Simulated scan of single mutants.
Amino acid sequence: MSIKRMDHLGITVTDLAAAIAFFEELGMELEGKMHMEGDLVDRVIGIEGSRSEIAMMRTPDGQYKIEFSQFEAPQSIDGSSHALVHALGLRHVAFIVDDLDDTLARLAPHGAEIVGHLEQYEDIFRLCYVRGPEGILVELAEELR
């Protein structure tokens, strides 16, 4: 086996501040921000002349991270940010929350909208999908046991 662990998931956005605010409200913690550019970055990502600001956020337990990138150059292109969940590619990130109703109420001022319906799966979970900034699909689940 060659994988030791997953380090992070990367999401490109056009409004870094909005992404940070949304995911902080969800409970993630900002680990740090930095400017990225130069020959090394260009060679790694395969885009010449790139400049971006990144923010690394982590879950409260420190186990998972999301890196948000906002490109200054070249201009970002829409990668189907409002695609439905069955579209090919990365579609959603999922979190277990303490109180789903409270989480939804706190995320609403940040533009979160329930995609379908809030549902209960047996006596195990209450769950729903919401769209966050940039159309990011976020699955939220509250454990009932």
Rank of each mutant, 00 (worst) to 15 (best):
G27P: 06
K4Q: 11
R51N: 13
I3F: 15
Q75D: 11
E29G: 13
M36G: 04
I11M: 01
S76N: 12
V44P: 03
L100S: 13
I3Q: 13
G38P: 10
H110R: 08
S76I: 11
D7F: 00
E134G: 02
R106N: 15
L100Y: 09
E143H: 12
A21D: 13
T14R: 02
L144T: 08
D42E: 05
M36D: 00
E53P: 02
E122G: 01
D15M: 12
E72D: 14
E48M: 15
D123P: 01
F95R: 01
E139Y: 00
L127V: 03
Q75A: 13
P74G: 12
A19Y: 08
M34L: 06
G38N: 02
G10L: 03
A141G: 12
E142T: 01
E134M: 02
D98A: 13
L84M: 13
L16E: 05
F68A: 07
T12R: 05
G27I: 03
F125P: 07
E122Q: 01
A18H: 01
I77S: 15
G32C: 04
V41L: 09
E31V: 09
S80P: 06
G10K: 04
P109S: 07
A19R: 08
M56V: 02
E37F: 14
E119F: 10
T14I: 05
F68N: 08
A83G: 00
I66A: 03
A105Y: 07
A17L: 04
G32I: 02
A87G: 08
D78W: 05
R51H: 14
S81Y: 11
R145F: 08
M1D: 08
A21N: 09
Q120P: 03
K4Y: 09
K4M: 09
P60F: 02
L84F: 11
I114L: 06
P74A: 10
V13Q: 00
A17W: 03
E143W: 11
R43L: 08
V138A: 09
G38M: 04
L40R: 10
D78S: 04
E37S: 15
T59E: 06
S50V: 15
P109M: 06
V97A: 13
M34Y: 06
I20H: 03
E134Q: 06
I54N: 10
V115E: 14
R145K: 09
S50R: 12
E37N: 14
V93Q: 01
M36H: 00
G116I: 00
V97T: 10
I11N: 01
S76M: 13
Y129D: 09
D101T: 05
F95G: 04
K33T: 04
M36R: 03
L40Q: 14
A141L: 15
G62R: 07
E53R: 13
I45L: 12
A17Q: 08
H86E: 12
I96N: 07
D7M: 01
D98C: 07
R131H: 08
E72H: 14
S76V: 15
R58E: 07
T103R: 14
F95Q: 02
I136M: 00
V85G: 14
F22D: 02
E53L: 12
V44N: 05
I136C: 00
A55T: 04
G79M: 00
R145H: 08
L84I: 11
A18E: 00
